[in-house]
Design a protein around this nucleic acid. Structure first.
Lengths: 222, 222
DNA sequence: GGGCGTCGTTATCGATTGATAATAACGCTA
DNA sequence: TAGCGTTATTATCAATCGATAACGACGCCC
């Protein structure tokens, strides 16, 4: 045993049954913070003490990993906003619809604060045409966009929602609701405040309801 | 002449007196579209038919090129919004201030449409802490942030501006005003419309004035 | 018009990237 | 417990990155 003591050393092996999820969540954070090109597969692996080739084993490629991350995030968003979808609001009157939309808006703000990676990835990808952008828009963004459209149009014609083109409103809403969390590092440098603090999130949701649904009398903010 | 005809071929040389500006504007576009890491110095040079080492000759490094690009863009923004700065609005009454702010808001929307690279770069950088973000925030963003603060506070206490925390309002405003242009490629895929079209920009500016300055009676939209 | 300074062009450097082949540790089943 | 399938680990590949050295074309000045 002496002679072969330190050459061909024993390999340490670390098995984690949840390694796929661990790698996926690390990828979310890195893709959100640095963009697809800026995130390296080595840094994604390193931040969860894994090895870079594990990414190619558990996912097919960096691009497939990105796709899995985006699928996962939009799945979470869909769960969060299920009650605002057209099928759920079919029989409601306008007043009930307004209350549901206000609640959905507040929850969207909460989601953007809790999972900033989704809007970070969207804004990184949206700046340049690419196959990734085309896929993400057709697969996830467009259905979401179309799902909230009828409710908004109804509230607008009832004088509750602000009189704004839906396409413009959509970007005003997404931009206004997500930027503090997308750019949280900048917010901390600029204001000294933490946008993830419950007080910020609450005030932010209240503000968006007030300016986008001005016809909703005294918004109950539960 | 025959024997040495095609070996050691004559070098073509292209001199452009404005090469610095040409490279700088190419860098703006690439940094805005792909972020600092995603933009390669070769692609910046190639899109204006220049060579990659010219960037290191005319600028010190990729980082210095990025700095020069950001300086240039904030210079343009400062020119565009000079009349909204505190020194220019010192003696005005609240009604005049409201009109000036509404105009400034519309011009900010126009600027974001004309020079989307500024907000693209800001949103790319703001997603992760870095020396670049610290420098940009301290040098350019903070002065801008502080400059519009007193005017907003005055309008808010006069009941003209929406009753929102200034720090939150700032991000609501920037996000709502810039996202359609930051993510113009996505807008085209999602809506089929061009956010750079004058009709979109006009409607967008009107919408922001309406929701952020609700106390401004019938906004003259010249 | 000869010399020199500026700067465009080419070639190449070491570092890092995503991907993959080679090896080996572990768990399950027979 | 022997064998095998799964997958963690190591090593390495070609491609691309930013940077720089080497070379040469051009314009200006004396």
């Amino acid at each position: 045993m002496q002679g072969m003591a330190d050459r061909n050393p024993v390999r340490q092996r670390r098995a984690r049954p949840d390694i796929r999820e661990v790698l996926l969540e690390s990828a979310l954070v890195e893709f959100g913070a640095k963009g697809f090109d800026g995130a390296s597969t080595r840094s994604i692996a390193r931040r969860v003490e894994a090895h870079q080739p594990q990414l190619n084993y558990h996912f097919e490629s960096k691009a497939a990993l990105w796709t899995a991350a985006v699928d996962y995030l939009f799945g979470l968003l869909g769960e969060e906003l299920a009650d605002v979808l057209p099928t759920e609001i079919a029989g409601l009157d306008v007043s009930q619809l307004a209350t549901i939309f206000a609640g959905g808006l507040r929850r969207f703000v909460g989601f953007a604060a809790k999972h900033p990676e989704l809007n970070q990835i969207m804004v990184h990808e949206g700046t340049a045409a690419s196959d990734r952008l085309e896929w993400m828009t057709a697969t996830h963004v467009k259905p979401f966009f179309e799902a909230i459209k009828p409710g908004w149009l109804l509230l607008r014609s009832a004088g509750i929602a602000a009189p704004i083109d839906f396409e413009i409103l959509y970007y005003v809403l997404i931009g206004a609701a997500s930027l503090p969390y997308v750019n949280a590092p900048e917010v901390r440098l600029l204001t000294g405040r933490d946008p993830k603090h419950p007080d910020w999130i609450k005030a932010h949701g209240d503000a968006l309801v007030a300016i986008l649904l001005p016809g909703l009398a005294a918004a109950p903010s539960g």
